[in-house]
Design a binder for these strands. Sequence first.
DNA 1: CGAAAATTTGACATGACTCAACTGGAGTGG
DNA 2: CCACTCCAGTTGAGTCATGTCAAATTTTCG
Lengths: 200, 200
Amino acid sequence: MQNIPIYALQAIQKTLERHIRLTDQEFEFLTQHLTWRKLRKRQFLLQAGEVCRYNFYVVKGCLRMYEIDETGRERVLHFATENWWTGDLYSFLTQMPTSFHIECMEDAELLQIEQQCMENLYTQIPKLERFFRILVQNSLIATHRRLISIMSRSATERYYEFIEKYPDLEQRVANHHIASYLGIAPESLSRLRKEYMNKK
Amino acid sequence: MQNIPIYALQAIQKTLERHIRLTDQEFEFLTQHLTWRKLRKRQFLLQAGEVCRYNFYVVKGCLRMYEIDETGRERVLHFATENWWTGDLYSFLTQMPTSFHIECMEDAELLQIEQQCMENLYTQIPKLERFFRILVQNSLIATHRRLISIMSRSATERYYEFIEKYPDLEQRVANHHIASYLGIAPESLSRLRKEYMNKK
DNA sequence: CGAAAATTTGACATGACTCAACTGGAGTGG
DNA sequence: CCACTCCAGTTGAGTCATGTCAAATTTTCG
C-alpha cells in the first residue's frame, strides 16, 4: 500500500482540530486506519448497488454525489472539494447497497476510513465519536437550509445564493451539474446565467 | 418540579433501546437530567430569537417546527409526534438565537434535556453520544430523501408520498401546515386532495 | 350563536420545463 | 496540425404545473 503523503495528514489533522484535540498518540493511531487513494477524472468512488464501506476525506479534487431518479435523471446531492467529507452515510451504517454514485469531476486524492474501523476508533478515541457527530450535525443543518431554500426561493434566487456561497464551484463544476444540484433544468440555468451577466 | 410519570419514562426507555442498551443505573442517572413538561395547544416550545437550550422528546401530542421566510411565509421543517425528538440543533449547539418556532398543534407532554446536561451525559455515558449520533444521522438521511423528493417529484407525487408515509399526520395536522411542509400552496393541496378523493 | 380561521373553488398569470435546433469548444485520430 | 466528432451550452417557441388573488363556503372555538 502506498504511503500517505505528509500534506494529506496535515490537512486532515487541521480539519479534526476544528472540533477536537487529539494527542499525538491518538492521531498516530488514527492514521494507521487511513488509506490513501488517488483517482482520475471520471472515475467512480462509489456506484449504486455497492455497499459504501468507507467514509472519504477529500485532500484534493472535486467530486459529486448523485442519485438517478425514476425518470433516469441525475440529482446531485452534494459536491465535495478539499477538506470535505463524502460517502453514503445510510449505506455506510446499514451496510445496505447505496443508491448513489460518487464521481470524480477532477483527478482526486482522498483518505478513506473503513466502517469497521470507525466502530473501533470510536471506542478507542471517544473524541472521534464527537467529531463525527458534529460533522453529521453540521451536514444536517446545511441540508435543512437547502431544503428551506428550495421550498421558498425561485430558481433565480437559488442560483444567486449558490454563486455567493460557492464561487469556486461555479468555476470548477460543469453547468449541468450545478443545475442538477439546484434542482433546475440546465437550459434554465443557462438563461439565469445570461441574465446575471447582463446585470453586471 | 413535577414528577415524571412512569409511562413517560417507559416511552423514552423504549426509544433508547432501539439503539443502545443502558444499565438501570445509567438510565436512572439519565432520568435525573430530564424535565417533564406539559403544554397546551397553540403554545410555543421555542420562538425565533430565543436560544434553544433543550432537546425535546415528545411523549404525547403533535408539534411543528417552522421558519418564517423573507416574504413572511411559514415553512414547516418537520412535525414531531409521539416518540420523536425535536429542537433546533443549530441553536442548541452554537447557543446562537434560533430562527425557528416550535408550536404545539395539540396539547403535548414532553421530556426535555438541557444542552449543558447533554455534555455531561455524553461524558458519563458514552453510549448516549452514540445514540444521539445515530439520531442525527437518521435525521440527515431523512432530510436527504426529502430534498431529492422535492427536487425530482411533482406536487402530486409528493402529496401521495406523504399520505403513504404519514397517514396519521394527514388526519391530525391542518391542511395548510401539510402544504407548507410539502412546499406547495394550500390551494394546490386542496385540489390534490379533491382529485385523490375522486380516484378512490 | 357568531366571529375568525380554514378550506374550497374559480379565473387567471407565470416561472420553469420540454423539445428541438444551433453554436462552440475540447478531445481524438489520421 | 487539421478535420471530425461529440458533448456542453445557448437560444427560441410552446406548454403546463403550480402559484396568486379573490370570493364563497365550511369549520372551529370562544
